[in-house]
Simulated assay, not measured.
Amino acid sequence: MEYTQLGRTGLKVSRIVLGTMNFGGQTDEPDSHRIMDAALDAGVNFFDTADIYGTAEEKGLTEKVIGAWFARGGGRRDKVVLATKVYGNMSADGKAWHEQSWPNHDRLTALHIRRAAEASLRRLGTDRIDVYQFHHIDRATPFEEIWQAVDVLIRQGKILYAASSNFPGYKIAQANELAANRGMVGLVSEQCLYNLAERRAEADVIPAAREYGLGVIPWSPLHQGLLGGALRKERENTGSRTKVGRSAAGLADPAVRAKVQAYEDLLDKHGLEPGEVALAWLLTRPGVTGPIVGPRTTEQFTSALRAVELKLDPEVLAGLDEIFPGPGPAPEAFAW
């Protein structure tokens, strides 16, 4: 396994991040534990989760599954850089995070941050969260309040680093400028939607992250299966992920479908697997720490690991850029 530092910190993390969103839901606890064991065996030390991950009936179940794995001992907890998230509504009324629910059970108020961190620690069965990520921006709560809550948690030893997810560039700048005014480290990483088919982050989010020394952690690196051999799986009637969400919407669009066909044809020509190439491409991108892979099975995880060793030659990289061109640097791409 290759390692890199997380942004401007001295923290060393693997270049593949184990995403646990499926654990406890699509993947039962025994299989989830086997995947986490396989991750450690492969040298993957960066695990990502969120307090709301689980099932509709039990938000927080994923953290409990991870906590049960830590409890098995063998140095598991100390080998892992553990990242979880705060923002979503964790009240027991069953509503989704974005729906109206009981007040003060979501967002980034000092009250919710403190309460959510304590709850995550209990579910995870640990004394600390290594990287505590804001799952979304909170337009109603000032960063002065957010950083006050984070400062308390850091001083208590309950979290070590703060980070963001789904932030626009201007919020990354605002957050870190206000943190610097308080003498704090500020955000150390940004987790954003970024892949070959969705490169808008290159225009704003990634430049801001690099300017402020944040590691970039792409989520949905296969664009919900679209970049994982979607057309081949469609022909073979395999791959349930290609039938829902962004992948299904993409394949229903003739223009997107043509790009995916060109992508798969290019990789067939070079004898490469689409999912592995999509991950390997992200590892070539400036500022990227490592993509999040969210396997449902050990076999899917093993396939993702091969991307770390895969070196794409210039002809393949040029072909990928031709099929999926990025937005270009800002502001030149739209101003000059």
Rank of each mutant, 00 (worst) to 15 (best):
161 Y>V: 01
68 A>Y: 07
176 N>R: 05
180 A>H: 11
320 L>T: 06
165 S>H: 04
118 E>Q: 14
91 S>Y: 12
97 W>Y: 14
262 A>T: 05
218 P>S: 04
204 D>V: 00
114 R>L: 14
108 L>E: 06
228 G>C: 13
54 G>F: 04
98 H>W: 15
159 I>T: 08
206 I>K: 01
73 G>Y: 08
42 A>H: 07
26 Q>Y: 07
252 A>N: 12
86 V>W: 01
65 V>D: 06
256 V>L: 13
279 L>G: 09
309 E>V: 01
128 R>T: 13
181 N>V: 14
221 P>S: 10
217 I>M: 05
290 G>R: 01
187 L>H: 03
205 V>L: 04
69 W>Y: 03
27 T>E: 07
85 K>G: 07
55 T>Q: 08
208 A>N: 00
260 V>C: 08
234 E>I: 12
279 L>M: 12
251 L>N: 01
69 W>D: 04
225 G>E: 08
57 E>G: 08
331 P>K: 02
192 C>R: 02
310 L>N: 09
4 T>L: 11
119 A>R: 05
75 G>F: 13
212 Y>W: 15
132 Y>H: 15
102 W>S: 13
228 G>Q: 08
133 Q>L: 10
81 V>P: 03
204 D>M: 01
58 E>V: 12
54 G>D: 06
265 D>H: 06
149 A>D: 07
325 P>Q: 06
207 P>L: 00
39 A>F: 01
12 K>A: 14
142 P>V: 05
106 D>C: 14
327 P>M: 03
15 R>M: 10
36 M>L: 05
238 T>H: 13
195 N>C: 05
62 T>Q: 03
34 R>Y: 10
